[in-house]
Each structure stands twice: as structure tokens, then as C-alpha cells.
């Protein structure tokens, strides 16, 4: 199913941050070409929280990496804040959170959070100020001088979110950031992430393969299916902005979750 170009809704609060038109990406592998993305049309507006969900190989991570200029599309166009991905990367338009925390083990937490600031070349004072602010935002105050191995997995991932937030880009790209964490830590971090999103009014693209996580966090859920990776459904969330964890038992939540599940199943039906 092909989605319409600009699905402006009540939840979209501003202009387009990411615009993809007929976007496609084919990897040349030893086993022949693999179509990772095919005919993706998507507009993400400022202030949205968009989740990408689908089975492995559906291209959700690839799409995120195209936005981040870590992969180059082979068909179609994509713009970020009106720029090409490369220009956007050079303008440091986004922060990227990887599947693993990917902290440098030889740096303390504060020095890890300060890494992008060092690279941009901010003054020491400015670095300190921003480190303090972002560490505070992810509730890691007091752990500045610790090394990554001294922190739990959840805290490490929070530090990596702080690092992505440090240079204050409006767009946050998150690639299954909580995939490796246990359910309890994950719930906690989801709650914190929502709070952070409301506080900072950032645009967030969030890749996951957990249906409850996608429904709980998002204002919009993009369901994708593999071979070739494509968008099969886009679901607008009707949940309120204020979301306590127990909203996950509400009928409204369950209805959205059911639709996501249907979308995933439909994407799989042609297999085998």
C-alpha cells in the first residue's frame, strides 16, 4: 500500500523535517542485489515522534541510516530540513542513538557525552555547561566521573542518549536503543524518553520491533515489511500526549496495537 504524501494531522505541529519521495536502496552483495528499501514516501513533521516497526530485513534501520547519511539511496530523493542528508550531517542536524550504547570505554561518562562537543570545537566552559544540562536531562547527574563499565546497561544507554542530545540537534534518530535491555528497565526508559521528548520538543525517529513500545511512544507508527523493504501502513496514534505506563491496558491502546499487529501480519502473508 502506498501512503499519501503529506499526512498532516492534529499531532503534527510544524513543517517537514524529513521528506522521502520514492526512496529506494539496493545493496550489491555477493549473492546479487538486495532491495533494502523500495518506493518509500514519507513526511515527518517537526515535533513528531515516529516509530518504525517491522520484522528484521524490512529496512527500518536502513531508512534511519539513509536519513543519517550512513547509507546512500539508489533511487528517489530525501531531504532533511530541506537539505540533502550529507549537508544535514555536516550541519549536525541530528543526533543518532545506536542499538548499543557505543560509549568509548576509555572515556568517563561526562567525557563521552562531551565527545561531539569536542569535535564541533566548543569552548571548555560551553562543553561543561551542555554536559551538565544533558546529563541532568537523562538523570545521570552524579555519574560524571564513572567509566562505562561501572554503569548498568540502562544507564549506559541513557548516557548515549545524553551524548546524542548534547549538541542540541532538533532531530533525534534512535535505532532500537532499548532492544538489548530487560523489560523493566525498558519501561522505565520509555517513560523517561517520553518526558524528555515533551520537554525538548524534538522530532524523534525511533526504530523498534516491539509493538507495545511503538504504540506507547509514538504519535505516528510506520509499519514496514521485508523483501523488498517498504512501508505497508502508517498509523496515527489517538493516545493523549500525557501517557502514564498503565495507558497500555486501555482499550484505545490495545486497538492501535491490534492494528499494528495486523499490519505486520499482512506484510508477512506472502512469505512461504
Amino acid at each position: 500500500m502506498l501512503m499519501t504524501v503529506n499526512q498532516a494531522t492534529a499531532t503534527s505541529v510544524g513543517s517537514a523535517v524529513v521528506e522521502a519521495r520514492k526512496l529506494g536502496l539496493t545493496f550489491q552483495t555477493n549473492d546479487g542485489p538486495v532491495r533494502a528499501l523500495s518506493d518509500v514516501n514519507l513526511t515527518i513533521n517537526k515535533g513528531e515522534f515516529v516509530s518504525f516497526i517491522g520484522p528484521s530485513g524490512c529496512g527500518k534501520t536502513t531508512f534511519l541510516r539513509v536519513i543519517a547519511d550512513l547509507e546512500q539511496p539508489t533511487e528517489g530523493t530525501i531531504s532533511i530540513n530541506g537539505m540533502t542528508p550529507e549537508q544535514a550531517r555536516q550541519a549536525r542536524a541530528y543526533g543518532y542513538v545506536f542499538q548499543a550504547a557505543a560509549l568509548f570505554p576509555w572515556r568517563t561518562i561526562e567525557s563521552n557525552v562531551g565527545l561531539p562537543l569536542e569535535i564541533i570545537g566548543l569552548s571548555k566552559a560551553e562543553q561543561q555547561e551542555r554536559i551538565k544540562r544533558t546529563m541532568d536531562l537523562v538523570n545521570l547527574t552524579g555519574f560524571e566521573k564513572k567509566y562505562p563499565w561501572q554503569l548498568s546497561g540502562g544507564m549506559q544507554q541513557r548516557a548515549s542518549i545524553a551524548r546524542a542530545l548534547a549538541f542540541d540537534a532538533d532531530l533525534l534518530l534512535m535505532d532500537e536503543p532499548f532492544g538489548a535491555l530487560d523489560e523493566i528497565v525498558r519501561d522505565h526508559l520509555n517513560e523517561q524518553l517520553l518526558r524528555l521528548w515533551r520537554q525538548t520538543n524534538k522530532t524523534i525517529c525511533f526504530v523498534t520491533h516491539s509493538i507495545p513500545e511503538a504504540v506507547y511512544l509514538s504519535t505516528r507508527i510506520v509499519v514496514m515489511s521485508p523483501r523488498p523493504g517498504r512501508v505497508t501502513d502508517v498509523i496515527e496514534s489517538t493516545l493523549p500526549t500525557e501517557r502514564p505506563l498503565d495507558i497500555r491496558e486501555s482499550p484505545e491502546f490495545l486497538a492501535i496495537a491490534a492494528r499494528v499487529r495486523d499490519g505486520l501480519r499482512a506484510g508477512h502473508s506472502y512469505e512461504d
Binding site: 547519511d69 550531517r89 549536525r92 543518532y96 545506536f98 542499538q99 548499543a100 557505543a102 565527545l115 561531539p116
Partner: peptide, 12 residues
């Protein structure tokens, strides 16, 4: 690892 190199790439 690739993730660290990608990270540096995202920082330009």
C-alpha cells in the same frame, strides 16, 4: 567497531 566509526561519521 563499525558503530564507533559510524558515530564519528554522524558527528562529521
Amino acid at each position: 567497531d563499525l558503530m564507533h566509526l559510524d558515530l564519528m561519521h554522524t558527528y562529521n
